[in-house]
Computed example of a mutant assay.
Amino acid sequence: MTAEDWPRVEAIFAAGIAGGEATFETRPPTWERFDTGKVPDARLVAVDEAGTVVGWAAASPVSAREAYRGVIEHSVYIDPAHRGEGIGRALLAAFIEAAEDAGYWTIQASVFPENTASLRLHEQAGFRVVGRRERIARSGVGPHAGRWRDTLLIERRSTRNGGQPDA
């Protein structure tokens, strides 16, 4: 993912926000804020035959503490016009490989329990639910605007080195 991809990434992000099942965010950040907040070595876009971005995946460190250097929180977004085409599965698989190649040992995300498509996708990729955060925050937009929402914390441990960081 590069700055040149940002207009399509931002549009896909905005569509996810508007749908109300992807994030607590109320609008996409600027490219500069997005770029500085995401790890550079696990940032991908999916493109169609014409080279148009139809999905993206990116992650942020969960902590600045050295002990958590291998733990990231990720997001995967697909253009609504291209959902159900297997793009999410391919993008998530490529993202996991890139993250493991970069030395990350845990990938996590918070998913709304109602987002069953995302939960199924992640389960098929080896993620598991490790907890539920009840009424963690209020939705800002979409059909749940103003309502307190739960999230499920999901994680996937690397299959390399028994799920542990390199020594």
Rank of each mutant, 00 (worst) to 15 (best):
Q108F: 05
T52E: 15
V111P: 02
Q108D: 01
R132K: 09
R149M: 00
R132A: 01
Y68V: 07
F127C: 02
R133I: 14
D48T: 09
R147L: 12
I136H: 10
E85G: 09
E85S: 06
E114H: 05
A67N: 12
G55D: 03
D79I: 02
G163Q: 01
T36W: 14
A50S: 09
I78D: 06
Q108T: 04
T116R: 00
R33M: 14
H82D: 15
R160W: 12
G55A: 12
R128M: 11
G142E: 03
W31S: 12
V9N: 03
V130D: 05
D41E: 04
Y104K: 02
Y77C: 09
E123A: 13
P29F: 06
E97F: 08
E155P: 02
E10G: 13
D166H: 12
A18N: 00
S110E: 08
G88M: 05
R120V: 09
E49A: 14
G103E: 08
S118R: 06
A64M: 12
I136L: 13
W56A: 12
E49V: 11
Y77F: 02
A46T: 12
N115M: 09
R138D: 15
T116Y: 00
G16Q: 06
S139V: 11
P7H: 13
F112R: 04
Y77W: 08
I72L: 09
R138S: 10
P143Q: 11
L119R: 00
R33G: 13
I78W: 13
F24P: 00
L152N: 07
V54P: 02
A102M: 10
E123F: 06
G16I: 03
T116M: 08
W6V: 06
P165A: 11
A167F: 09
V76D: 05
E155Y: 00
P28A: 15
V39S: 07
P143L: 05
R33C: 07
P61N: 11
A109D: 00
A57F: 05
G20F: 01
I72F: 00
W105V: 15
T26C: 04
I96F: 11
G126M: 03
A42G: 06
R83K: 00
D101C: 14
I17W: 01
A59W: 07
G84R: 02
R69N: 13
I72Y: 01
W148D: 14
D166A: 15
V129D: 08
I17V: 05
A14L: 11
G103C: 10
G88W: 03
V76S: 01
P28V: 11
I96M: 03
F112N: 08
V47E: 15
G70Y: 07
R33K: 12
A145L: 00
I72V: 04
E134I: 15
T106L: 14
V71E: 14
E85D: 10
D166S: 14
E21Y: 10
V71P: 05
A125L: 06
G131I: 05
R156D: 14
E21W: 13
V130P: 01
T23A: 03
R89A: 15
L153A: 07
R138W: 10
T151A: 06
V141E: 08
R69W: 11
G20Q: 04
V71G: 10
D101H: 07
T151R: 02
V54G: 12
L91H: 13
L91T: 12
A50F: 08
E97T: 13
W56Q: 06
T106Q: 15
H74M: 08
A59Y: 06
